[in-house]
Design a protein around this nucleic acid. Structure first.
Lengths: 328, 328
DNA sequence: GCCCGCTGTGTCACCGGTGACATGAAATGT
DNA sequence: ACATTTCATGTCACCGGTGACACAGCGGGC
């Protein structure tokens, strides 16, 4: 691929002059300009971002680190980040953090070595103090979950209010024994949702029964096992609150086999309205998270000393469908 | 962030020596090595990939350009690419090409300016000759759809056989009037599936009726419109073949309202087995496409002059569920 | 005629890790 | 004891676009 010096040689000028022509610097004579433009065209010059990136020490790239890029929630989030980045001539590097919190630091740091302009991260580990050294260099924005161990911007959704809303909704449909099915309380979002669930019970003066809280529902098999644990209770639940979309989806086939319990889940998912019964959910807006996060990175790049709101919590809303109507 | 020269100054050696220690070059005395290692630790040195990338002219990055990264199919594909790349210390830049084929060249070229090690692309345009200049520099691998206008590796799925299989399946369930609902025949995959559909009809000695082929079913609304066009026919279809998962999903609510037609779709999707009726589909393997594509890029990087099979077509299989049983 | 400013263009250095090569000292071989 | 190899370490240049600065030539104002 032709470099600027190649073009310069062909046009009989210095590389700097080519640079000027390429960047529409007015201080170039018309004759020179035309000669250079011809050479540019003839050599099919395409500038490499490498040198500018190297010189500036900052790649025109925004990183996105999420638990799983194939998850529709994070897919939508990433897509939104990319849309914002593209408008500003930036690219997006993506990485899946997976399930193992201990691997998070290594994965994220190998991303950061690329001198990203910013990083949007939905962490899986309980502590991000390993990012301490990077806070000054890279604009870090947390989404879905707040940072812990460091101070960084965050855009999250109202886990507490959403879970409270969904649980209250089940209570209003006459349920008293409401199970909480989740993945792991190591994840802050799940913790927040559990707290919201408890708050709704408290509001309704329903005693909190720890045996109704079952974790580890990661896929259909483990969801079945978790559900079985609830069924074995002396007083099994008549309704279930699923702490995220993955749990809800894993639960659908399980509930199908075991009579109809009421179900409400945190997080909408494709086809939720087409299932029988259609699933009542708390609707999140991953695209909004992504857009805001990307925007914040660009804002901070453009205005390094401006001050911003540290934590933004987006409201969520209940999408009422049929699954909360049925009773065991 | 500390550079090698910073470390060198602190340890009282040259930058090169630091480089040697960092890369475990045995030609360093134990004393020096320890002094350097201390300095490395004290300054918390993390190498920047920027300089090496610049010098080598090749970023340790694989690009992934797909129509929509939020689509579960491409999400799974991207995830697989990333998994392979991560093992080799590489990152993945992703970009959505969107819907407008005319924007593809600009989007892809802005990716390529980053001197990627390779690019995995599922194109939306009908012609990739704009990539001509890049073939020599960047390892291009096409997935899901072949390249047109240039010679490049491809990994695709057997659109023809899959569509033929699904259509034959519907025929075997007694259907003669089978509608074909698709997005656009500008997309090569859709074209291939249409051909497969026609082949199955031919096999069964069923006349091909062009009015049974309706395109433009991109979302629920347009799918409804497309379906309405079929319903208006004098002899409406009793079964429908949907040319991709997005069409199938858009069609689910539409069919719900209009009596039960048999349905088979190309491409599985989450919850397809939980719908009522569960949807018979042709199962694709996006992760396999992603893995193979990434692997090919790494292979070509490692063995530049080795020869490879240009085009690989992966088999697909029918997942029989309930939707093909019901009859209008 | 001199200074000033403006214009068009060129030169140089820089960003940071590392390959190619050099250098001086110690170790080994004869 | 001297030649030769090995070893530890250093110096330099490079990758490519561009900011800082230089400089020659020219026109205008005094």
């Amino acid at each position: 691929m032709a470099t600027m010096r190649d073009v310069a040689r062909r046009a009989g000028v210095s590389a700097k002059t080519v640079s000027r022509v390429f960047n529409h610097d007015p201080h170039v004579s018309v004759v020179t300009k035309e000669r250079v433009e011809t050479a540019l065209r003839e050599l099919n010059y395409v500038p490499s971002t490498l040198s500018t990136t190297f010189r500036s020490g900052r790649a025109p790239v925004i990183g996105v680190a999420v638990p799983d890029i194939a998850d529709p929630f994070f897919g939508a989030l990433a897509k939104a980040v990319e849309a914002v980045a593209a408008v500003h001539g930036m690219s997006v590097v993506m990485t899946s953090l997976g399930e193992d919190p201990t691997r998070e630091p290594a994965i994220v740091q190998s991303l950061l070595r690329q001198s990203l302009s910013g990083l949007v991260i939905a962490p899986i580990a309980g502590d991000q103090s390993y990012l301490d050294a990077w806070v000054a260099r890279t604009r870090l924005v947390f989404v879905d979950r707040r940072a812990s161990g460091i101070v960084a911007d965050s855009f999250t959704e109202d886990d507490h209010a959403g879970a409270q809303l969904a649980t209250r909704h089940l209570v209003e449909h006459g349920h008293v024994r409401i199970g909480f099915l989740g993945d792991s309380t190591a994840i802050p979002t799940s913790r927040g949702r559990l707290v919201g669930y408890r708050a709704a019970l408290l509001d309704a003066a329903i005693d909190y029964d720890e045996s109704l809280v079952v974790l580890g529902a990661l896929d259909r098999r483990s969801a079945a096992a978790a559900f079985a644990a609830l069924e074995r209770l002396e007083e099994p639940p008549t309704a279930i609150f699923a702490s995220n979309a993955r749990v809800t989806m894993s639960l659908v086939p399980v509930l199908r086999g075991h009579g109809h319990l009421a179900l409400a889940g945190f997080g909408d998912f494709p086809m939720a309205d087409m299932l029988d019964p259609s699933v009542t959910v708390i609707d999140q807006d991953p695209a909004a998270l992504g857009t805001l996060a990307a925007q914040r990175i660009l804002d901070r790049l453009a205005h390094p000393r401006r001050r911003y709101r540290r934590h933004t919590v987006l409201p969520v809303e209940l999408v009422e469908r049929a699954s909360c109507l049925s009773t065991g």
